[in-house]
Amino acid sequence: MRWKTYIASAVAVATLTACSTSPTGRSQMLLMSENDLSQMGAQAFSQYQQQLPTVGGAQLNYVQCVTNDIVAVLPPEQRDQNWQVKVFESEEANAFALPGGYVGVNTGLLEIATTQDQLASVIGHEIGHVLAHHANERASTQSATQLGMSVVGTALGANGVAGSDQIMAAMGMGAQYGVLLPFSRSHESEADTIGLQLMADAGFNPQASIELWQNMEQAGGGAPPEWMSTHPSHGSRIAGLEAGMGDAMGRYQRAQAAGRSPSCKA
Rank of each mutant, 00 (worst) to 15 (best):
R2E: 10
V161F: 08
R237I: 02
W213F: 12
T114R: 15
E92F: 11
A162M: 14
A72T: 11
G160I: 12
G250N: 14
S121R: 04
I123M: 11
S140Y: 00
A191V: 04
G148F: 01
G235N: 10
T230K: 12
A155E: 03
A97N: 05
A58E: 13
Q214V: 07
S9R: 13
P76C: 08
G25P: 03
L196A: 07
E188A: 08
A58K: 15
P262C: 09
N94W: 11
E111L: 12
G25K: 02
V87N: 03
A202I: 10
G235I: 05
E111T: 15
S229Q: 07
D201Q: 15
I194A: 03
R79H: 06
D69M: 05
S164I: 07
I238V: 14
Q84C: 01
L147T: 12
V63I: 09
M32W: 04
Y102A: 01
T24K: 06
G128P: 05
S22F: 00
T141L: 09
Q146S: 10
E137Y: 00
S184Y: 10
P206C: 12
Y177G: 06
W3N: 03
N215R: 13
L60D: 01
G240V: 01
L241C: 09
G163M: 06
H129R: 08
T154D: 08
G124C: 14
M171C: 07
